[in-house]
Structures are given as C-alpha cells and as structure tokens.
Simulated assay, not measured.
Amino acid sequence: MSLDLPALREAVARHGAVVRILVLSVAGSVPRDAGTSMIVWKDGEEGTIGGGELENQAVREARAMLGQPARLVLRSVPLGPALGQCCGGSVTLVLERIDATSLPGSLPFSRPLPGTTSPRPTADLRPGAPPLLRDGWLIEAAPEPGRPLWVWGAGHVGRAIVDVLAPWPGVAITWIDLGPDRFPGSAPPGVTLLPAAEPPALVRYAPRDADHLIVTRSHELDLQLCHALLLHGFASLGLIGSATKYARFRSRLTALGHTPAQIARIACPIGEPALGKHPQAIAVGVAAALIKSATSGQRQERDAIG
C-alpha cells in the first residue's frame, strides 16, 4: 500500500492540519503490513493501522502534534513488552504532521528525518512498493493502479458490491447503469459513474484485463452485455442469477455464435451460495473471490521476481 495523495489533500483541505500515521516497517506477527496508514485530525480519523492499543496510543500522540509546527517522528514499538498485545511482533511507525505548506506535490515523496544532513538519495521505487528509509530519508512510492472492475447495474446488489469493494485499494471501480437517477445520491470516493442509455455500447471502452460483474434489473440487458463482453475480452465475468438462468443464457449465447469454452468463462451465480442471497451476502462473497484472486496473482508475481 502506498500514499493516497488525493485522500491526503482532501483531508488537509477539510481540516487544515492533519497527522498521518504510517507503518514504516514490521517484524513478526503484527496487525497490519508496512505501508498501511491512517489520517488523524482534531475530532476524527480515517483509516486504521490495526486498532488495539497500538492505534490508541498513536492517535493520542498524533492529536498532540496537531498544534505544533510541521514535523516527523519515528517510533519503534515492541507490541508485547510495550503494549501488552498478544501479536508479539514489533512495528516502526512514522507520525507526520502535514498542512497545506508541507503537502507532497507528487509521488514518489521523499523527506528527511529530523537531524538528517545527507543529500537526497536516488530511489527507483516501483508503484505500490512499501515505504523505504534510506540514508536518513523517508521515501514513499506512487500507488499501484487498482485492478479495473466494471459493475453493470446499480440496484440493491450493485450498490452492495460497490459499498463493500470501494474502500479496498486493490480495485478501480467503474459503475454503469441506464441513467443518473439509477445511482445513489453520492457514490463512494474514487468510483467512476457512467450513466448510459445503451450500456453495451460502453463495452468497447473497457480494458481487456478488467473484471466485470453484471447485476442489472433486466435479463435481456444481461444477455446483451454477456454477448458484447465475450466478443470484447475480459479478465473475469460474473453474472447474477440462478442455474436456470445460466442454462438459458448458455443456449442463447451458443445461438449467437459463442463456443462452450467461451461461455464457460462466465461465472453464474456470483458470490458464495452458502452465504445466502441477501445483497450484502452476495457482495461479501464477490469481494472475497476478487481479493483472493488479486492476492494470489501478487504472490505469483513476487515468486517469479524472487
């Protein structure tokens, strides 16, 4: 996880001065990984570094820093001896007071620790790389682009899926329905809304490595989208429905010229059937499958590099 510069800028614009708490490095069993961060202001906070006494004490110190000049503090915390937490590992935190004068202009973001006199080092950090401490300088990379996810339909299930997945930094959500009135009054931050009278016409603009979830109110529109996406290409395609609906779609898609192997790439029903059919239950199952797929791919990439 990397610095979310738009979120930090928005927090500073709303609250003036904020303190960002960053997990710089970890050892052993800990609540969150290196690169995790949260933002604290006078009467609120956003994000979490894992909760518990570690976060409780860090937030208290962060609020005490708000009335002070901009500065950066490094804290190494053994979770067991210092806080009585059962994790047993240790965490190094950075607490950094940030206001409009100290906001980073771009990423990667490099700044010296207090007392550092060495020149700014060069560091070629790939997007999404964990924070780096080099020669007394703290360096954070640009975030890794989110995995493109196109959600077709803004009904109960579509809304539940977007609500569950939007906070996860692993996706970049594009949300499509027939008109602006189909969407909720406000969408989660970072979600792109695309009202369209003819949603299948938008398929051509989808990245070919995008994941798609079709959850519209119309079976006919669902079929048109499946047909268009099978012609276009995708990373994965999930269709809301039952085994009966899927059987009928297989027959109709076959008549449209698609092979059994192509049609078999459509997952229907979506989610985890054992969780039930409530919109939030479907959303949780869908989210779990996407996150599992993404983290599995990241592990394979790391193994290939290593």
Rank of each mutant, 00 (worst) to 15 (best):
S242Q: 03
P169F: 09
A274C: 03
V164N: 07
L24H: 15
F234M: 04
T48F: 06
P31N: 08
W152C: 02
R302Y: 12
A267T: 15
E55I: 00
L8H: 13
R250Q: 15
G170P: 12
P188Y: 00
V19N: 01
D181P: 05
A264Q: 13
Q85A: 02
I263C: 01
S110H: 13
T117P: 08
P148T: 06
A172F: 12
L194D: 09
G153D: 00
T244H: 10
V12P: 09
P184G: 03
P78G: 00
G153Y: 10
V26Q: 06
K42R: 15
A289K: 02
A287K: 03
E144K: 13
W41K: 05
G115P: 02
D177Q: 04
R182F: 04
P279M: 02
I291D: 01
V30G: 06
A274M: 10
G89I: 04
R120E: 09
Q280T: 15
A11Y: 09
I305T: 15
G52N: 04
S251P: 09
L66E: 11
A196K: 00
H227L: 06
P104I: 11
T295H: 14
G285F: 11
A154I: 01
D209K: 00
I39S: 10
I21P: 01
S293M: 10
G105F: 10
N56Q: 12
D99H: 07
A261D: 13
H227Y: 08
P104Q: 01
